[in-house]
Design a protein around this nucleic acid. Structure first.
Length: 603
RNA sequence: GGUCCGGUAGUUCAGUUGGUUAGAAUGCCGGCCUGUCACGCCGGAGGUCGAGGGUUCAAGUCCCUUCCGGAUCGCCA
């Protein structure tokens, strides 16, 4: 190891190094002082090794006595085997230790605000305030180390497959659809604003027009929307675009990448990915990103409920927009009543007014074998038909949803995931799949249509067919889903000006607006745009899944809090009057509540 | 924007129907200890109970407002 103050990393020492003279650099993880002998666990990014000082080395021993946690040390010493009785099997380097013959304190450290031990839990706000210390923890080191390995593997894979890494602007223009933009005021253009890209979507399409044929970028994207455990205002996409490839080609090359990452970095063979039409995902699993580790499925019983007197069921059954469905939970009869009540409350979040159920004690005894608040409203032959259709067995529990299609689907879809988690129903570790055959559009609240994917997605029909029946049209889009998380999505794009204008028209984007916002794209489509398409992966989510993290915050070095702030740097912050003047910006008078906040922050 | 959970020692938490000097663990400081590894033993220091207001003889505890962190619905083409 040249050009460095160390000869080897602490965490790399093992029996093979015995008798070597080494120089280590690292942080004091822990010090154990036995009066006559001092143990220092020295930590660097590769791991921890035990260093021993005894009074024979007078000066070093006195120094070792002064050392405290998180001091930065340079230690010279000799690697030696531990006595059989003192080997530590819980430690990667536990077979050896370093007998310290030289010690230099490179820097002292104040007592850290929290302990770095892995067995101590610390509130996330404290961790984020002192993120540079938090990142010293082994778990975080491991996550970011792994992230680096993944991005390197991605670059290698893309390079091997002929993709070029091309950067696109961060300062760009606002787009009319999609998420809220982060805006950057222009100094040189009074009253005008840049937007940070929600994704490099249009630029990568233009690169295809330019003939680069295969592009990729590990790109920062920005969306000013409310945060979640898997959503940050700035996040990273593996952005990919190709020319002269159809959806099969694109899915094949990107699936190959994900499969290789899992194989090479985790030793997991994901196999060939399943394919599922969007409609099946919604109808069976209540989600466009179904978690197929969970064996539960929704089974429609709308036809059985049309004529029952029980209005809760017959109402939606006779409403074209309604949905009535059953979901069998094998062995669900063991779920306590209290838990069922909790699930009722859970589905109410999604607008469900109740959660009917039947506990199947004896499927052959319709009189007394079914335990349920609703069975008395249902004719025996309907009960029989339900049991047959869901293939119920004794001990099963059947949940029901009856409401609008949207509410039933979302509520039971969410319940399905919750049951999977609570009852640990997972049948496998990894369930990758492609969701395909998305609709082009979905209805908006005010009766219009909006792009389900984005407005540059190609339909799988002609412009004429599209305009004749836009609501039914399917797109050439595809999403990659892993364990109920949308890892990435993409589509074959429109490369024809007429088709693009047809889509804008259906979306209600008028010609002058088309010109203003997308004129450059429409122009580009005129000058020889090749057939093209692509896909973008959420890198943070991918790393989160691969490392088993609870939140993408744990795989991002410096993430934001739920209010999109950074508690370490205190960003965002206020700026001086001069800066605002340069940007031609005058702030509105603050409401009083706001003033209290900024005062408490400036102290 | 809505709903829910949380904020008490550096940290993680407990704190009863409102009632004496707000506790524990861990960390920290000092002492002892030559084989520990979440070392051990003895002693010590350490608190604007998130902030503001109110009720009360009395508030960590009850009420109102507000800030912060998290989960979630809406939102996220």
């Amino acid at each position: 190891m040249g050009n460095t103050m160390r000869s080897v990393y602490c965490g790399q020492l093992k029996a093979a190094n015995i008798d070597e003279e080494v120089t280590l650099c690292g942080w004091v993880d822990r010090r154990r002082d036995h009066g006559g002998v001092i143990f220092i666990d020295l930590r660097d990014r590769e791991g921890i090794v035990q260093v021993v000082f005894d009074p024979d080395g007078e000066e070093n021993f006195a120094l070792a006595d002064k050392v405290r946690p998180e001091y930065v040390l340079q230690v010279k010493g000799k690697v030696r085997a531990r006595d059989a009785a003192t080997v530590n099997p819980n430690m990667a380097t536990g077979e050896v230790e370093v007998y310290g013959t030289g010690l230099e304190i490179l820097n002292s450290a104040e007592t850290p605000p929290f302990q770095l031990d892995s067995h101590i839990t610390v509130g996330e706000d404290v961790r984020l305030r002192y993120r540079y210390i938090d990142l010293r923890r082994q778990e975080m080191q491991k996550n970011l180390y792994f992230r680096s390995k993944v991005t390197t593997a991605i670059r290698n894979y893309m390079d091997e497959n002929g993709f070029l890494d091309i950067e696109t602007p961060i300062l760009t223009r606002a787009t009319p659809e999609g998420a809220r933009d982060y805006l950057v005021p222009s100094r040189t253009h009074e009253g005008q604003f840049f937007a940070l890209p929600q994704s490099p979507q249009l630029f990568k399409q233009l690169l295809m027009v330019s003939g680069f044929d295969r592009y990729y970028q590990i790109a920062k994207c920005f969306r000013d929307e409310d945060l979640r455990a898997d959503r940050q205002p700035e996040f990273t996409q593996i952005d990919i675009e190709t020319s002269f490839m159809d959806e099969e080609g694109i899915m094949s090359v990107t699936e190959g990448m994900i499969r290789k990452l899992f194989q090479d970095l985790q030793g997991v063979d994901l196999g060939e990915f399943d394919r599922m039409p969007y409609s099946e995902a919604i109808e069976k699993y209540g989600s466009d990103k179904p978690d197929l580790r969970i064996p539960l499925e929704m089974v429609d019983i709308k036809d059985l409920m049309k004529d029952v007197e029980f209005k809760v069921f017959s109402g939606p059954a006779n409403d074209p927009k309604g949905r009535v469905t059953a979901m069998k939970v094998p062995k669900g009869g063991e779920i306590p009543r209290k838990k069922v009540d909790a699930y009722t409350k859970f589905v109410s979040i999604y607008g469900a007014k109740g959660l009917a159920y039947i506990k199947v004690n004896d499927k052959d005894d319709l009189e007394n074998g079914l335990q349920s608040p609703i069975v008395k409203f249902l004719p025996a032959e309907v009960c029989r038909a339900i049991l047959d259709r869901v293939e119920a067995d004794n001990g099963d529990l059947i949940f029901f949803g009856a409401d609008t299609h949207k509410i039933v689907t979302e509520a039971l879809g969410a319940l399905r995931c919750k049951l999977g988690e609570d009852l640990n129903l997972y049948t496998r570790d990894w369930a990758p799949l492609w969701v395909v055959d998305f609709p082009m559009f979905e209805a908006t609240d005010n009766g219009g249509l909006t792009a389900l994917h984005h407005p540059f997605t190609a339909p799988s029909c002609s412009p004429e067919e599209l305009q004749a029946n836009p609501a039914e049209a399917l797109s050439r889009a595809y999403d990659m889903v892993l364990n109920g998380t949308e890892l990435g999505g993409g589509s074959v794009r429109i490369h024809d000006q007429g088709m693009q204008q047809a889509v804008f028209q259906i979306l209600g984007i008028e010609e002058d607006e088309q010109r203003e916002k997308f004129g450059f794209l429409l122009d580009a489509l005129k000058y020889g745009a090749p057939p093209h398409g692509g896909l973008a992966f959420g890198l943070d989510r991918l790393i989160m899944l691969m490392t088993g993290s609870e939140s993408i915050r744990d795989v991002i070095a410096f993430p934001k809090t739920q209010t999109a702030a950074c508690v370490m740097t205190d960003a965002p912050g206020s700026v001086g009057a001069d800066q605002l003047k340069d940007l031609h910006i005058r702030l509105r008078a603050k409401p009083q509540a706001q003033e209290q906040k900024s005062e408490s922050q400036t102290k």
